[in-house]
Amino acid sequence: MSILVNKNTNVVVQGITGHEGLFHTEQMLVYGTRIVAGVRPGKGGEWVVSGKVPIFDTVSSAVEATGADCSIIFVPARAAPDAILEAADAGIPLVVCITEGIPVQDMMRVRKYLDEKQVRLIGPNCPGLLTPGEAKVGIIPGHIGRPGNVGVVSRSGTLTYEVIHAITQRGMGQSTCVGIGGDPVHGLGFLETLELFEEDPHTDKIVLIGEIGGNDEERAAEFITDRLTKPVVAFIAGQTAPPGKRMGHAGAIVEGGTGTAAEKIKALEAAGARVARHPEEIADLLAGL
């Protein structure tokens, strides 16, 4: 089983006629995802993917006609904030935004608006969701996953593929893989995802993949201590990375000393998580649990 998406999820693709939108719509359909509609203003009434998917001008008309309960966004960065807001206003409870390069101030405004709505945002700048054997809503290569009991949550893109691949190669499988995205301001975070995995009866172990910067991993460590009963294997990318370019004094004052790989690893280990030294070791540690 899974969290967030499964074989009954009805997906609308925003930006379905673009190069990436169309390519990944086909990939998702091949995987078995229920793609019920696409949105492209000005092309409502047309069909794509050999007549399999109807296009609508607006998200609300797509929802009305098809009952879509999940949206995936492939529109360019300048239009993506609008696309997220449009999906939220159409009453879609789960919005996955793949688009990268959205300005931070745009995302702060979008998040502020979404906070007052009943909507979960995944991303932006993320690879999306994969529930192996049921549905993929995103761009994670489908063949690398396999149904199983490991929940995966990650801030990265291709590093997540690497880890999913390694887990599968070791004969294990995943309940759901969640790419929450690497932007400073994003939707669903580690905490909410860990909580969903904790409640999911089919997830027995959790893999958390973090990166240097911010303090999401430190907060996840607190959550693991306080709330989580399932075992966690973690990896933090960037142990050898050069220190980030300094953001004036304000960055140092606001972020304080948080954000280095060493601090994140220390916090996660103190919370009882097993921390892998490199990505392939994640699968070894999982197998030992």
């Binding site: 990650s154 801030r155 990265s156 893109g157 291709t158 590093l159 997540t160 690497e162 690497g182 993949i209 990166e211 240097i212 990896f235 990318a237 960037g238 142990q239 050898t240 990375a241 030294r277 490199h278 990505p279 392939e280």
Partner: peptide, 11 residues
């Protein structure tokens, strides 16, 4: 990918 690039440096 940035995350994979950092992980590659780490390994």
């Amino acid at each position: 990918g940035a995350g994979l690039a950092m992980a590659t440096m780490d390994i």
